[in-house]
Design a protein around this nucleic acid. Structure first.
Lengths: 145, 145
DNA sequence: TTAAATTAGGATAAAATTATCCGATTTATT
DNA sequence: AATAAATCGGATAATTTTATCCTAATTTAA
């Protein structure tokens, strides 16, 4: 619900990579899919998207892997990860799927939902990768089970 | 996002049926899929579910069709339609897909999202079919485009 | 220089969701 | 009784999403 499975994996992967990067550790695909409990090959595809979007950096070869630098992780917001993978549907979509749902042409739940959507957007625009990865790092939250 | 296409169609269909029932008119599959802009055969399947769930009543034969009695439409909540079609995932699912996301075992966005989820649940538990169908009936909201 | 470990990326497969088709059944009208 | 119009329900098809496989390219280390 809300996000595609790919997007869920993508968020968890970036959070994990950011967490490792807190301690200056790079991580590879195996680490990631083990830690977030996701199918390896599928996760690899998602990581490619994140690399292309400039959210994650990657290096090939032995000792290769993925990383996110600390400065970036403070700037990167949840919305950036979501958009990189699911596109920007979250911004525009109507709960009932109307193409032009708006104040002037609302669906039957537009007015009830608009505040919820506003809060949701506020949240994904505010929450940073740094916030999430630190919370995982100090054991306040988890990435699997 | 949030709801499956089937669920979107299901909500719009029930709202339309309820609206027609306001004026004691029954409607048939063609009316419905025309009015909510949905594939006919697929909509038929969804209506079957709604009939089995006791949300919509149906009758066969010439002059047959679908209806919802007025009293019911005041009692039936959005959540009932959603549950009839998508099951009760909305109640339990975690944004990041953790199976056991909870206060004691939260995902990295659990605390940011819990208030939004609460509002969403409140909304779907409060909004009735009657609310939505009346708003459509007086032209305050639309079911397509 | 060779071997091993890694990401990149194309091709394909599996599963889930969405959509269609068709015959059976029911019911009102003629 | 025959016909037409409607839902019901099983089978199937198309599309999208999720997942896997395999080869190539890259990089480190022995």
């Amino acid at each position: 619900m809300i996000f595609s499975k790919a997007c869920e994996y993508g968020i968890k992967a970036t959070v994990f990579i950011a967490q490792k990067s807190l301690n200056n550790e790079r991580c590879n695909l195996t680490d990631i899919s083990d830690e977030i409990d996701s199918p390896k090959a599928f996760t690899a595809k998602i990581l490619q998207k994140l690399v292309k979007a400039g959210i994650v950096n990657s290096s090939k070869g032995k000792l290769g892997g993925f990383g996110i630098n600390m400065k970036d992780s403070k700037k990167i917001k949840l919305i950036d990860v979501i958009t990189a993978i699911d596109g920007n549907m979250i911004e525009k979509t109507c709960v009932l799927g109307l193409k032009k749902c708006s104040e002037d042409h609302p669906c039957p739940v537009h007015n009830q939902f608009k505040f919820i959507k506003k809060d949701l957007l506020k949240m994904v625009h505010k929450t940073t990768l740094s916030d999430m990865s630190k919370s995982v790092d100090i054991g306040l939250s988890c990435l699997k089970i």
